[in-house]
Each structure stands twice: as structure tokens, then as C-alpha cells.
Computed example of a mutant assay.
Amino acid sequence: MAVTIKDVAKQANVATSTVSRVISDSPNISDRTKRKVRKVMEEMGYHINLNARVLVQQSTQNIGIVMKDSTIESLHDPFFPVALQGISSYAHKRDFSISITTGETEEAIFRDVEKMVQGKRVDGMIVTYSKENDKVVPYLLKCGIPFVVVGKPVVHTDEIMFVNNDNVQAAKDATEHLIQLGHQEIAIILGDREFEITDSRLKGYREVLESNNIPINDAFIKQSTNMDCIKTILDELLALPVQPTAILGSDDLASLHIMSVLREKNIEVPRDISLISFNNTIVAELMNPTLTSVDTNIFQLGYEAARCIIEEIKERSTHTKSVIIPTKIRKRESTQPYKKVE
């Protein structure tokens, strides 16, 4: 026989209405009572009737996750599994589930979002990127559904809740680290310029070079839209009259490819070229040599995104929230002091 709310209330020695309020996460119930009742629910094997709750509360207890690319591509990028861990961790605490877009193209992903919103399958959305010419964010604004963006919104910044790093400062720190090691010929390989993060990092890179009176060499500024571009980019950099002695990679996965291509050319990191990256994923620790990388606290980005959206779902705010997650350089073997070749 299925365990009922009355059974839980009796075992926990509280009123049935108290159990109902714990299930709905009412702010009028103390955290101590919530923990007590939830413990009893778990011990007795009580499961919430989600269909009934949707009808009563007009809530799905479900968050939609909008991926940057197809699910397969996104999960191959070590950033997204960690971000999803953060989202899932907080969602689980608040008894929320998640639904991920599964489209293989931008248009298919947008259709997934439409289905989630129009079909009332979710209470809110987390958009895991910020880019120009994006259809998703304007659509969510128009619909009025709660949502949060991971990254600084490109448009309607003052109207949109977001969780982000200070990517300008992160790039400044990475570039300054190389300068302190004696490097002045510093190249940067950026990601897709459609994404807000790319322009922010380029800005930080430029500002630090200027503040250190190091001329900006436009030939050192490269853009990679996929891994296949990296070999061509490195061919171009190494063919220059003055070659870079250090490189900023767009992320750890791209930096793995950079190191691999350099090794094929008998160029060793960090002996010949120092290499620093962003995100500090497991890839950075497994590389040989290990990769110096700016820790963007990916798990925390996801965790705070989930916290922001669930708080917004529970009680709509009158002002736009923004959360900035700090970054820190994790120094490893891929960067070393510049040694002039005689």
C-alpha cells in the first residue's frame, strides 16, 4: 500500500498541513521541521504525486536547460558536464528536475525551447551561453517565463538575470601572468566571436598589453570556431617574422589541441612556447605537461544559475539579479619564465 501524507504526518508527529507545506517548500516552515519531515518521507518511501502537484500548484518543479550546441557536442566539451553537475546539485536540494534541449542545430534547439515553454513543461529556463543573433533569449523575454543566462547578456542586459565570471579580469590575469614570466610576444586564440565571452577576453588581453606598454600585434589575435582551425592558426603564427613565445588558449580542450599540434612540429610546451588556458577542467590536470588554467569555478556557475532561477520561480523579484563568480589562476607546468634564444 502506498504511503500517504497522513502516514508521514503521523510518523513525524506534525499536522498533515505541515507536510503539505514542506512539500511545497513553504517559507513559513522552519528549516529544522523541513529536515525532520523530509527525513521521515525518505525513510518511509513516500513519493510526491507530481501530476497532482502540477494541478494544484500550477508548477512542474522542472527547469529547462538550453545547450549551446547539440547535446552530444556540448557533453564532449568538459565545461558543460561540470556546469550540469552544479545545476543538478542545487535542483536536487529543492526537489526540482531538469530537462535538456536535444536539438542538433540552432533551429532545432529553439524548437525544443518553444515546446518546453508552450507545453508548460517547465517553470523556468537556464540558458547556458550568451551570444549575438540568438533567438532563444528574446523569445523567453517575450514569453515572460523566468530564466537566467550563464554569461553576460548581449542585449537587454539590465532586464535579464545572469550568472557570470568577470571575463575581462580573467583575461587580464592570464595575460599578466605571462608578462610577469617575461613574455611580451603573446598570442591569443579566441573562440567564436558571436559569444559575449570572446569579446570580453579580448578586451582584457588588449588592456593588459597596453598598460604594460607592449605593442598590440593584430597578427597574434586569432579566432577558432572549431578544433580543425587550430592547425591552420598555428601554421600562421609560426610563419610570422616574430613568433609568439606564449599563447592564451580559449579553453582547456582547445589548448589540448594546441599542445598536440605544437608537439607534431617538435615545439615543446613550455620549453619553446608557454601555454595558458581557461576553465580549469579535468583536462588541464591530465595533460602532459599539466596545463596552467584560469579556474572559472564551473560547478559554482551552474549551482548559482539553478539557485537564481528557482528563487525566481518561487517568488518573482522586482529587480534584475546578477551574480559574478570569482576566478583564479591554477599554475601548473605549461608556463615558465621566458628564456631568450641566443
Rank of each mutant, 00 (worst) to 15 (best):
N288A: 15
P270M: 06
S260I: 12
P241F: 09
N279I: 08
A306S: 15
L301D: 05
A254C: 12
P244T: 05
A305S: 13
T296N: 05
L256Q: 07
T296F: 08
I247S: 00
L275Q: 07
N279H: 13
P289E: 12
T292Y: 07
F299T: 06
E264V: 03
I258N: 00
A305M: 03
D251Y: 03
V242D: 01
I258Q: 00
N280K: 08
P270S: 11
S274I: 08
F299H: 13
N279Y: 12
D295N: 15
I258K: 01
L291W: 05
I276V: 14
F278A: 07
S255L: 07
L240T: 09
N297M: 12
T290F: 03
M287I: 11
P244V: 02
L301K: 00
T290Q: 13
I309Q: 00
D251N: 15
A246H: 00
R263D: 13
I282W: 10
A239T: 11
I273C: 06
D251M: 05
E268M: 14
D252I: 09
I258F: 02
Y303I: 01
E285R: 07
I273W: 04
S255M: 11
S274W: 04
R271P: 03
L237K: 09
T292Q: 10
V269N: 04
P270H: 10
Q243W: 04
L301P: 01
L262C: 08
L237H: 03
L240I: 04
G302D: 05
C308P: 00
F278W: 08
P270C: 09
I267P: 01
G302V: 03
G249R: 02
H257S: 11
S277W: 03
E285D: 15
G249H: 06
I267K: 06
L256I: 02
E268R: 15
I267H: 11
Y303Q: 04
Y303C: 01
Q300R: 09
A254R: 04
L238T: 11
N279Q: 12
L301Y: 02
D295W: 05
T281A: 09
L256G: 01
V283F: 05
R307C: 03
L253N: 03
E264N: 14
L301I: 11
L286C: 14
F299L: 08
E268T: 10
N280S: 13
L291D: 10
R271E: 15
N288Y: 13
S250R: 00
G302A: 06
M259L: 13
V283E: 02
N279S: 15
E285Q: 14
R307K: 15
I282H: 09
Q243F: 05
L240N: 05
E304H: 09
S274K: 04
L238P: 05
L256W: 00
L238I: 09
L240M: 06
L286R: 09
N288C: 15
I298G: 02
K265F: 13
G302M: 03
I298A: 07
E304R: 05
S274C: 10
R263C: 09
C308G: 04
A254K: 01
V283M: 08
N266A: 13
E285T: 13
E264G: 05
N280H: 14
